[in-house]
Design a protein around this nucleic acid. Structure first.
Length: 457
RNA sequence: GUGGUUGUAGCUCAGUUGGUUAGAGCGCUUGAUUGUGGUUCAAGAGGUCGCCGGUUCGAACCCGGUCUUCCACCCCA
């Protein structure tokens, strides 16, 4: 007897009810992507290792699933490397492919490879799974879906504005009100690092700063110190820890802090423009917030950085993120193509909607009508009726076996079918069928060729 | 990668200081009801106690390892 089957940790099976809910989210996102003029592409689930490695920082490399080479790969490894038992030197010799880690880097690769066929500015969306060799925890999986929309070849800040609207449109459609789109700007962060004299420690500085609302001012400063940022520098950065109030006043404080930083002021200018445009256009359900401590995201962001957090009261990491990257395609040899994009975390949005009970009730309804089966001859008539309904676009099915009526009704009940049809010997003789409304219990007789209009809607 | 946590029936979980035949609720099957689901009543099926090893006369329970679950850190959607 074989062992109980299992699936790798951090992966999931999806049952019909779950797929229905996931599709609800996917269709919403996809619909808005298309309305905003994005075109779909897909890329392979695995790429050459060199395409991915080194793009996400050291930590990222560790989390990339590497694919073992085929054939007798071990014999090709030289003895020194082999006996060293060092994973990092052995790995490149036995793997040259890796599973996609996100959709942005493969997209950059795609743009470079297809640059001559693409009409710029290129707006693309992409919905595919990505893989990370991470330890699973709440809302964190080793296989999960990203839904990305990016624009490359357009420098205007109005792109950023459009993406904020896109977030708003999707979450509004999903009924998820009260999301917060947090925005920051890499240039502002660079400016701060510059002003306090810690340019070379920009990443360490921002990673620590990002934790402010989570671990508090004291611990953040501790972490900065431990990363080699001087007390004087931290002192200078002090205004950041107190920054409160509306966007305008925060920008004012930043302007003061960054008065000597060209790049910092540029970042402020960008944010001002974006905020002002968004204020003019308005948002339906989300709110835009300036957050100078927002620093997540990968090293390739150069301008705006976005992160969306779930409505207050839902303990969930970010449900979306994105930003501007001026030179992502540069790493693949195509310079001066600016890109900006955002990502929706399907799996996390699912968890949030579930927690807030925001899925439409009708979502699990895979069948509108189930026709019961009373035998060979009746079954044939039933199938004829069902076929007619199907051509009219009604989700109709016939119970496949002529088992006890009770059992068939129970099945209909479980499947959550709103209408059941009875077509037995009696009805067959009289050229009619009985339609039962499962919720009210009411039964109505129809002529065999009549299909009630309310099923067609 | 670090620290902790979990695993017993299809599901949610009890299970005493280690002691005979491991329990409950829900679900499932059958019947009450041979043309009517949800409610009710009755009966029944279903368990290598995650896996491997150890201690013991005896292990679901103690010990070691391993896998898994969930949580936190790192990092991230």
């Amino acid at each position: 007897m074989a062992h109980k089957p299992s699936i790798p940790k951090g992966t999931r099976d999806f049952s019909p009810a779950e797929i229905a809910k996931r599709n609800h989210i996917l269709n919403t996102i996809k619909g808005q992507f298309q309305r905003f003029g994005f075109q779909p592409i897909e890329t392979p689930s695995f790429e050459n290792s060199e395409t991915l490695l080194g793009k996400y920082g050291e930590e990222g490399d560790r989390l990339i699933f590497k694919i073992l080479n085929s054939g007798d790969f071990i014999s090709k490894v030289d003895d020194v490397t082999y006996s060293s038992k060092n994973s990092s030197s052995l790995a490149p010799k036995i793997t040259d492919k890796a599973l996609r880690y996100d959709l942005t880097v493969p997209f950059a690769r795609y743009v470079v490879m297809h640059q001559n066929e693409i009409d710029f500015p290129f707006k693309r969306y992409q919905i595919q799974p990505v893989w990370r060799a991470d330890r699973p925890q709440k809302g964190r999986f080793r296989e999960f879906y990203q839904c990305d929309a990016d624009v490359v070849g357009a420098n205007s800040l109005l792109q950023e504005v459009e993406f904020i609207q896109l977030y708003d449109a999707v979450f509004t459609d999903l009924g998820l009100t009260g999301t917060t789109i947090k925005m920051n700007n890499r240039k502002v962060l660079s400016g701060i690092a510059e002003v306090i004299g810690a340019q070379h420690l920009l990443v360490d500085f921002t990673v620590a700063l990002d934790k402010l609302d989570k671990i508090g001012e004291g611990k953040v400063k501790e972490e900065m110190l431990s990363k080699g940022i001087s007390t004087a520098a931290i002192q200078k950065a002090n205004p950041l820890f107190q920054m409160r109030g509306n966007a305008a006043s925060q920008l004012e404080q930043l302007r003061e802090l960054l008065e000597d930083s060209v790049i910092g002021l540029q970042g402020i200018q960008e944010m001002e423009e974006i905020i002002s445009a968004v204020n003019t256009l308005g948002l339906r359900s989300a709110k835009l917030e300036l957050d100078v401590t927002l620093a997540r995201g990968l090293n390739y962001y150069t301008g705006a950085i976005f992160e969306v957090s779930a409505p207050e009261g839902v303990a969930m990491g970010s449900i979306g993120g994105g930003g501007r990257y001026d030179d992502l395609t540069g790493i693949f040899g195509l310079n001066d193509v600016s890109g900006v994009g955002i990502s929706f975390g399907l799996d996390r949005i699912y968890l949030v909607l579930e927690e807030l009970d925001l899925f439409p009730k009708s979502i699990g309804q895979s069948l509108q009508v189930l026709c019961l089966n009373f035998g060979t001859e009746e079954g044939l008539a039933a199938l004829k009726l069902v076929s007619q309904m199907r051509t009219k676009g009604i989700k109709a099915d016939m119970y496949p076996a002529a088992t006890k009526v009770q059992k068939q009704f129970k099945y209909a009940d479980k499947r959550n079918v709103p209408y059941v049809i009875l077509l037995g010997a009696k009805e067959l003789e009289e050229n009619c069928y009985i339609l039962k409304d499962m919720a009210s219990g009411e039964q109505t007789t129809f002529k065999i060729n009549d299909i009630p209009a309310f099923l067609l809607g």
